[in-house]
């Protein structure tokens, strides 16, 4: 039977370990963090019962080493993440170019009294802002969000959440007013469609990979 001090100590250690578990990738955490916490709690309780509170010290060191090694191992997709980040930047640039082209063409076709390039790089008559400012803002937002998404790119929820955020921020940034409703709405739709398509393609490319068994527990 554990003393109140030992029980408090165990509770405290479990809380600390719970925080440490947050460092694992989301997908791993979702699958195993509850089980890992159970194993940790049972292990710590057995150590205290069999060898006393002081034995928690080597146990904690062992857990810390295990945590360090496995966090690095489970995050061995650092290379994938780096590639994903580069790909995200490249995608975003492509999207920006495509959207800018669309804007130019749209203003060429449907522009009012100004020509397309003038509207893109000079001031809007109504908004006092050139379209390029919105495009630049959208690009920065896209870069930031897609970078963040790529950093946790192994997680489907984060990707979907990032897409939602991206669409929201994109449409908000690109929608100063409903002055040129057609253009702005179409830009938002195009941006969203391109983003969804590119991310879907990347997801399909990335997810089928199987982990290597023989890289485990060396």
């Amino acid at each position: 039977m554990l003393s109140p001090f030992e029980q408090r100590l165990l509770r405290c250690m479990c809380k600390i370990y719970g925080v440490m578990l947050l460092v694992y990738p989301c997908s791993f955490r979702r699958g195993y963090s509850r089980e890992m916490m159970l194993v940790f709690r049972n292990g710590a309780r057995d150590v205290v019962q069999n060898s006393g509170s002081w034995a928690l010290l080597p146990f904690s060191l062992h857990i810390l080493c295990d945590w360090l090694m496995t966090v690095l191992f489970e995050r061995d997709d650092m290379e994938i993440m780096r590639k994903a980040l580069v790909a995200a930047v490249r995608d975003t640039c492509c999207i920006t170019v495509a959207v800018s082209c669309f804007v130019v063409v749209a203003y060429m076709l449907f522009g009012r009294d100004d020509n397309a390039l003038k509207l893109l790089f000079l001031r809007f008559a109504f908004e006092q802002m050139p379209v390029s400012v919105f495009v630049a803002q959208g690009t920065v937002t896209l870069l930031a969000v897609s970078g963040a998404v790529s950093a946790v790119g192994v997680d489907m929820v984060a990707v979907l959440g990032g897409l939602g955020l991206m669409w929201l921020s994109g449409s908000m940034v690109m929608r100063p007013v409903s002055y040129y409703a057609f253009d702005v709405g179409a830009v938002g739709v195009l941006q969203s469609a391109l983003t969804v398509a590119l991310f879907s393609w990347r997801l399909l490319k990335r997810y089928p990979s199987q982990p290597s068994l023989n890289a485990v527990g060396k």
Binding site: Y24, F28, G31, Y32, E35, M36, M37, V39, F40, G43, H62, I63, C65, D66, W67, M69, T70, V71, F73, E74, Q210, P211, S212, L213, A215, V216, G217
Partner: peptide
Amino acid sequence: LQLGPGTLYGCLKRMLAA
């Protein structure tokens, strides 16, 4: 061979996949 929770569940995850 003392498996920590991270090693254990990392192995189990990959063994399930295999």
